[in-house]
Design a protein around this nucleic acid. Structure first.
Lengths: 144, 144
DNA sequence: TTCGCTGCAAAAGTTTTGCATGCAG
DNA sequence: CTGCATGCAAAACTTTTGCAGCGAA
């Protein structure tokens, strides 16, 4: 018997190794291709379609987060975990070195409140990524 | 004889109608496909490759801005004009209906300033997309 | 007469889907 | 048994590229 909105999920070797692999990557951002190649190298090959399908499930469950840095680069994924507290902040990402910085700024909280009032739009702050250039990369580019 | 970094550009009918079309769209975001279809409908057909190639040129010149809202949706373009920065803004996107809303909020400007000071991180506000649910979609989900 | 520009088709590259088979429950 | 899951290949889709011919300067 399944609940209304969610589909019953079977436990398979493939799902287990995919999730383990993502968890083992910690804070770093990995692409679907990394998972496929990594599991292949570990002697636990999983089909490409299976990986993409399960990534969608994990994302909809909130277990992982999907980042679209740009459309020139494949999407990246990151393990979030079950603790809801870690979702209450947004991120800065450097478009050059892909460094990720956590941000918890009152301006953003205020903006989220205002947007709900003025636009009637409920922002999910945890999905927010600000793109730009970090200090190191700006210095590097200056020297070019 | 061309300057160091820039390539000499020839004036052609295609470039003229493409740029005119983008300008005529004003503030709205248009996709490459919109331009191709629009010009086709106007009796000024331009090849797909030509459109994409010229869009890249216009973007590198700063005449238009390119938005990658998500990789589920094609890139959008907008005319900027001669005063880059004057239309700097970010976006709200509904994760259910994919509606896009323009936002020009002082909280965000403030956040961008603070982030440059405290994190030494230079945010490109125009690349920012806040994801969430619009009023219509929240009402729809409530009724489920 | 240059040599950048155009347009078509094909390629590139990530993500999705159809379908036959496999296997968890 | 049931029917969701898997894996392969093909498709879907946006964007890029190769190339022969065109045309602006």
């Amino acid at each position: 018997m399944t609940m209304a909105g969610e589909k019953f999920q079977r436990n398979t070797r493939q799902k287990a190794v995919i999730l383990d692999y993502i968890k083992a990557c910690g804070d770093s951002h990995i692409r679907a291709e990394d998972i496929i190649a990594g599991l292949e190298a570990m002697g636990e090959p999983v089909g490409k379609a299976t990986v993409y399908r399960f990534l969608k499930v994990l994302e909809s469950e909130g277990q992982i987060r999907r980042y679209t840095i740009s459309d020139k680069v494949p999407a990246c994924y990151q393990y979030v975990g079950d603790q809801p507290g870690c979702r209450e902040h947004c991120h800065l990402m450097c478009i050059r070195c892909q460094k990720l910085i956590h941000v918890d700024n009152p301006c953003i909280k205020q903006f989220v409140r205002e947007t709900l009032e003025t636009e009637d739009f409920l922002i999910d702050e945890s999905k927010t990524v600000f793109y730009g250039l970090c200090r190191d990369c700006r210095n590097f580019l200056k020297q070019q």
